[in-house]
Structures are given as structure tokens and as C-alpha cells.
Simulated assay, not measured.
Amino acid sequence: MTAFFLIIVITMLVLFALYAKRSKSDFPESLIMQHSPIKIGHRGASGYCPENTMASYKKAIELGADFLEVDIHLSKDDVLVVHHDPTLDRTTNGKGNLRDYTAAELKELDAGSWYHSRYKNERIPLLREVLENFGSEVGILIELKHPSAYPGIEEKLAEELGKFQECSTSKNKIMVHSFDMESMKRFHQLMPDIQVGVLIKRRINDQKLKEIAEFASFLNPKQTILSTKLQMRIQKHGMKVFTWTVNNKKQIHMFKMMQVDGIISDFPDYFLD
């Protein structure tokens, strides 16, 4: 009995020693990593393809994105088009303001060659095209760019999404966000069933958080200002926490451990590590 007891004691001591070598954070991290934030492809997979193009969206889906983040403006003839900048010079062979062109004129522009010659046939997509081509595969996170420059853009978006929902059997979600809080208030009143959020890149006080929480489902702080403290303040007001634009694997890992609800990245495949 004595020898058997000694064997048991020695075994327990060995196991304890092995366990003690583990990092103190191993156990809680293993629990935290069970949480999986929404993987949001920033302008598609813009780390690999020209941003906000069909090629970029296809690549993002291939790399495992849950949502595509798309930016929208209004053309001269009031068509919702997908493009980031208010001007055309950076990512197309066009010049000047996007809103000075009709949708048909915008569709003639080359939106891929600036990135690489193999993308020379890429065009500026219409929002309708993005919804029709990808809305059944992934969620779509729509950002209204400079909505104050396009009076009535919220109504146009509500109309477009209403048409899409009527003819779609997809259960993938649509979300809408903007830096413009008033624009999101207006859109929420038009389509209360669609989750809206507000983007921020500066500190925010509790009074403003309270105002946003009255209509928004999520807040989307820039990664450089997102801390555990801010996350807790946002969650205290009943909103989810997203962050943008995270293109470093270690930072993605850190935000996953923080259990944020969504991470926007140019590299959707970085979530796999």
C-alpha cells in the first residue's frame, strides 16, 4: 500500500509540475478564443485586389469573409454606386467628382489597372450588382460615404434594400454604418429592422454613447482608439463593438481575445491563424 501511495503522489507531483509550466494566460485565452468575431472584408479583400471591385469581393469570399464592407455614393443620375473616394482620380482612369458622372459613364471607367494590369477590366460596381451577386453568400456591411453631400441618399438606400429583400430568400444580413450619426438616425427610421452603426475615430463621451445607443446596434471605433475600457463602455450601453481596419495578425489575435463582435480587415485570411 505504501509503494502504491508513493507512486500516486509522484504522479500527481509530475502532473502539477507540467501544468505549472503553462502560461497563466493559457486557460482564459483558450476560453476567449472560442469567441469568433465577424470577419469583415474591407472593400472586399483589398489587400489582394483593387478595392470595391467584383474581383475584390470574390476574393474576400474565397478567403472566408463573413461580410463584405462596401462604400456607396450617388451618381449624377441618383444611382447608388460602390466607390470609396468622392473623387475618381485615385482608383480609376476618371477625373474629378464621382457625383458629376452618370452611372452609365462611371461603368465605362477602368477601376482595376491602377492596382495591376491584370485587373484592367474591373469596373465600378452598382450597389444593386453587389447585392445580386453576393448577397446570397455573405452579409453586406454598407458604409454611406459623405451622406450630407447626397441629400436623400438614405431614402435611395432604403428603396434599393427593400427591392433586394423582396426578391431574395437569403438569410444573410445587411448592416449599414457611417461616420454621420444624423444620417444613421434617418436611415434607422426608414428601415428599423436593419442594424445600423456609427464609425468613430476620436474619443467619445458617455452622453454621446447614450445618444447613439438610442438607434444604433453597434459602434465601430478605429483600432487605434479601441481599448478594453472603451469596449466595456460601449457594451454598457447595449451596443456591439466592431473595429477597423486591422491588417496585422497579432492585432487581430488581440481583438479576438478581447471578444469584439466584428473585425474589418483588408486581409480576411489573417483570421485563420
Rank of each mutant, 00 (worst) to 15 (best):
L74N: 03
S75K: 13
K76Q: 08
D77H: 01
V81H: 11
H83T: 05
H83E: 02
H84K: 06
D85K: 11
D89W: 10
T91G: 06
G94S: 11
G94R: 14
K95G: 00
L98D: 03
R99E: 00
E105T: 03
L106S: 06
K107E: 04
K107D: 02
K107Q: 07
E108V: 04
E108R: 14
L109F: 07
D110R: 06
D110H: 08
D110W: 06
A111P: 06
A111N: 05
G112C: 08
S113H: 07
W114F: 12
W114C: 01
Y115R: 13
S117H: 11
Y119F: 15
K120R: 09
K120C: 02
K120H: 15
N121C: 04
R123A: 06
P125C: 08
L126Q: 06
L126N: 03
L127S: 05
L127E: 00
L127V: 05
R128Q: 02
R128I: 02
V130N: 11
L131W: 04
N133P: 02
G135F: 01
S136Y: 13
G139D: 05
I140D: 01
I142C: 14
I142D: 13
K145C: 03
P147K: 07
P151Q: 11
G152F: 12
I153Q: 15
E154V: 05
E155D: 12
E155K: 08
K156E: 05
L157Y: 08
E159F: 10
E160I: 00
K163R: 15
K163D: 04
F164Y: 09
F164C: 00
F164Q: 00
Q165L: 13
S170F: 07
K171Q: 13
N172T: 08
K173F: 00
K173Q: 12
K173I: 03
I174S: 02
V176D: 06
H177R: 09
S178A: 11
S178Y: 15
D180T: 04
E182K: 15
S183V: 14
F187M: 05
H188E: 02
H188Y: 06
Q189N: 15
P192H: 13
P192R: 12
D193W: 12
D193F: 10
I194C: 05
I194P: 04
Q195L: 10
L199K: 10
L199V: 13
I200R: 10
K201V: 00
N205Q: 08
N205V: 01
N205F: 07
